[in-house]
Each structure stands twice: as C-alpha cells, then as structure tokens.
Write a protein that binds this DNA or RNA. Sequence first.
RNA 1: GGGGAGAUACCAAAGCGGCCAACUGGGGCAGACUGUAAAUCUGCUGUCUUAUGACUUCACAGGUUCGAAUCCUGUUCUCCCCA
Length: 427
Amino acid sequence: MSQKTNFIAELQWRGMLQDITPNTENYLLAHQKVKAYIGFDPTASSLHIGNLATLMLLKHFQLAGHSPIVLVGGATGMIGDPSGKSKERVFLDETTLQHNIDSQKKQLAQFLDFEGVENPAEIVNNYDWFKNIGFIEFLREAGKFINISYMMGKDSVQKRLETGISFTEFSYQLLQGFDFYWLHQNKECMLQMGGSDQWGNITTGIELIKKKIGKEVFALTCPLLTKADGTKYGKSEGGNIWLDPQMTSPYKFYQYWIKDIEDADIIKFLRVLTLLDRETIENLTTEYAQNPNGLRRILAENITTRVHGKEACQKAIAASNLLYGKSTLHDFENTDAATLEEVFAGVPQKRLSKQAVAESANWVDLMAEVMQISKSDIRRLLKGNGISINQQKISENDALQTPQPKWIKDQYILLQKGKQYYLIVAA
RNA sequence: GGGGAGAUACCAAAGCGGCCAACUGGGGCAGACUGUAAAUCUGCUGUCUUAUGACUUCACAGGUUCGAAUCCUGUUCUCCCCA
C-alpha cells in the first residue's frame, strides 16, 4: 500500500467537513488503523445520490488506511429518524425492511473494499444487537445516562415540537447513540460520521459513551449537498435519483448530472463525489472555465462510471449524444441496429405493435396513452409547438391525422415533449 | 367543559346568489433566447368531443332557489381563545 492520505486534510480541501469534534485529527494522526462507522437508513430498497456524499466519507477513510464500518439500520429503520422530517413516519413492514437491507448491502459493497486489503470494510446490522435487548434493559443501559432536556435540545426534536413527535421517534437518537456505544465496545469503533443532519444524533452517542464509560470518542459530518440557492439536490421530476439501475436507468442517472447541476456547483461536486485529486480538479477548473458543459460531462461520466460501470456509462453517453447532439433522422438510420438498441435501452420506452399504432385514431390519442398525460395536455403542447416526432416538430393539424409514422430502423418512433423529455415507442 | 374561526385546484390565497373552471402568487409544463444552462420575456396549467362547446369540480351528505363555491341543515376534520 502506497502513500496514505491524511483523512482530515483530504476532507478539508474537498469541502466535506461540516462539524468535527475536538481532537479528532490528532487522534487519527496518532493511530494507524482507526474504525469509523456511518449508518444508513433502509427506508428504500436502493440508496440514492443523497447517500453518495456520506459514502465518499467512508471511501476516503479507507483510502487513508483506516477501516470503515457500514451500519444498516435494521433496528433503527423500524423506528424512524425524525431528522429533517416534518411528519411522523409510517412503519415499514418487516419483509420490506429485510428486502431493503439486502439490496442496500449489495450496493454498499461495490463502493468499498471488503477483502484483499489490510483494512477491509465491514457491514453490520444494528438489529443484530437490538433484537436481544428488552425495553427495561434498554432504559437501564442507555436511557438512564441521557437527560431529557439534553434530548429536547436537539434540532430534530425542536422542529417537531410544534407539529408533534411521538415518543418513538423522540427516542431515535438514543438508539443511534446506543449503536455507537455498542460498536465502540464490540468493534473498537472510535469515530462516527454522517451528513450534517445527523450531528444531533451523533453527539448523543458521544455523550452516552462519555457518561457510561468515561471515554472520549469522535465524530465528524459533511455538509448536505445543496444547490447554490440552498435548496436540496437529489430529486428531479420523477423523484429521487436512485443508484439502482432498475429504478433510475444509467441514462437518466447520467442525464441528471448533465441537466440538474448548476454551474456554480460543478466544482463542488467534483470535489465531493469524485476521487480526482486536487491538482487534477484545479487543472480542469482552469481548462474548462469557459465551458461549464464540458466540465459537467466529466463529472457526469466520472460518477456514472463509478456507480454503473464503464459500459453502462458509455451507452448513456452515446444515447445522450444521439438525442441531444445535432443528430437527425439520418444519424439514427446510420447507426446499426444493435448499437441503437443498446443506446435506447436506458431511455424511457413503451412497447406498442405497429398494428396498434396504425389503428390509433390519431397522434393525440396515441401520445396521450403512451406518455400518460391527458389529451388536453397534448393539445396544449401542440399549440405551443412542444411536440416532436422523430426529431421533427408536429403541428396540431397533423397530429389529428391517423399516425403513419416512419419507423426508425423499422422499429422505433422517437417522441419528444419539449427539449428534455424523450420517449421511444418500440414495436 | 365553555367560546370563536375555518375547510377552495400541486401549495398559498381571493371569491360570499348569476359576469366562476373560479382573481393573484409560488410551483410545474411549453415557446423564444442559450450551453440539454442561469437570468429574462411569452403562453399554458380540471376533463373530454376536430371546442366563441359539453361535462365534472370549491371537505362530505342533504335542502332552499329559475340558478349556489357563495344561503340553510346535518356530518367529518382542522385551528384559536378561556377554564
């Protein structure tokens, strides 16, 4: 293993450090292999790009020669973290929860090294220790050490005092605190990390360990990814951007970074979400000062490749070039069928037989059905010149005719709503 | 327990017997400009027949009226004040 990075310094220049407990850096510098953990909430069957930043914390931690622990919240997921939530959550049933945990585990595994290195990562599930603890025992082991007013002071609780918070969610920080304690006792875990919204929960753990066994442990958080105007990243029209290719296709994933990142934030994302080193990023910054889109492509390619692999990423790029480049019908016809099929794989698609198309009364009906919007909407779009078929604008009059489309490669029709929404009808 | 206020489209918020498919703002969508940007400007934003048209909407259920989101009755829910 070659030169290891200084973890804290690395985070600092990347702008990934929000809060940090005193003495953390000294401790890390003084110890070769430290263990740190981050908890992930199994509320969905896939991680999303909001988890990417915290995942990078663990990645850098491992690159610095330390051992990361990934905690999936099998137990805490049954409770619900009030942080950042304005409403009480609905419980997930156990089958869903288990399914979510399993799929998240797989995703997490691809970002860190679990074997073949001297500081392998490991995954734990807090259900494994919580399942054996009874309520009485928990109150005696954890609850006794933390003061109510201390818990009430947390932001996550404060914000919910008006709208209401159940005892269950109120207790969440105690459970998370206990996780830290347990990992400290059983895995020598010294550090907890997370997004800055987790700071309150994390410090409860530090407090618990200090009160219970008098030991000092550490914590740090990274800023949540927000847009230059302060609003949250991570959602687009369709909702969350997931890491699971089944839920968000690599094409859509790639497009997200192209479309939804503001100029002012590109560099921030390069620092936080890629592993490019400082010098490289600085060079890129200068090189692309006048060409933010070029830089955006580098960002998108880098992230998409890491999440979905090189091959999937290249297809996403090919699809993007074909759809958003200066391409014409000719370019489509000139692309061989196999390539076209691969390229289109990630683009939203609807299967519809040629016969069904030919039998539609007109384009309006057809498009309303295929795009899942009302005919009124289609008409409005047509009036506003917002619909294209095979890269060609269509008028309202034409749209009322029976569809007699030209099938690209004898099997595709390319429908477009506005500039950014494509849909392929495949025979 | 007593008193008061309110429930309108994605959100906020007008309307208080006909001119209301419902002012306005935000959001969203589209067009122009552009960089698959931002900012700006324009249009649209209940559904449906080739629309100066029809139909279904203003918490829910009934009623008064030629006619109601607007008036009356009951139901459900929300909020505020006093105890």
